[in-house]
């Protein structure tokens, strides 16, 4: 066993608190995937460019490959596993990706879903250009993005209906 110094931290992910012991250098992406078993967050580059590892840190999209687990201890984290509706049905962004064929291999998808979740919160009715801008920091090698842009607009629609229903 390694003799590295470990830090006991609390990670609050998708509303659940987890206690883990990690070395200071452990990336948040690795802690989520390998210590908590939340393997929905993917790692495509580990240098902050592809966006596959994007999670929401207190509601803001952040690249979990560029954060240490210890630095996320005081934050509320949301990963792709936390995007479904409370009743277990697909959340609006998830639903939109499925409807619009916004994914192929699915590897980049979690990063898009979290990014867009935050994006449509900030801008609930994006134009196509705004939709493009919203996802302009995420790489996808499969889809060519056309259907992802459609999915952003569709997700905004679904989210609007959803929150409309919730208001009633």
């Amino acid at each position: 066993m390694s003799t590295e110094q470990l830090h006991r931290i609390r990670l609050q992910v998708n509303g659940v608190a987890h206690e883990v012991e990690v070395p200071a250098r452990r990336l948040l992406s690795d802690a989520l995937r390998h210590d908590l078993g939340l393997t929905g967050t993917h790692v495509g580059c580990e240098h902050g460019v592809c966006g596959a590892c994007t999670i929401l840190v207190d509601g803001t999209p952040m690249r979990s490959c560029l954060m240490f687990a210890v630095s996320a201890a005081d934050s509320e984290l949301t990963t792709v596993e936390g995007l479904a509706n409370a009743d277990g049905t697909l959340g609006p962004v998830q639903q939109a990706f499925r409807e619009c064929h916004g994914l192929q291999c699915g590897f980049c998808t979690p990063g898009f879903l979290t990014t867009i979740t935050a994006g449509i919160k900030e801008n609930p009715s994006p134009s196509e250009d705004e939709a493009r801008e919203m996802i302009a920091g995420n790489l996808c090698r499969c889809t060519g993005y056309q259907n992802i842009v459609k999915a952003v607009c569709r997700a905004a629609e679904l989210a609007a209906t959803h929150s409309g229903e919730a208001d009633q």
């Binding site: 995937r33 393997t39 499925r98 699915g106």
Partner: peptide
């Protein structure tokens, strides 16, 4: 036809090699 595999993928329940054998 909408893809059956997507439900799994969009929930983060895909299973890639780095996800197996924890």
């Amino acid at each position: 036809v909408a893809r059956v595999e997507d439900d799994r993928f969009v929930r983060g329940h895909g299973r890639y090699v780095d996800d197996v054998a924890p």
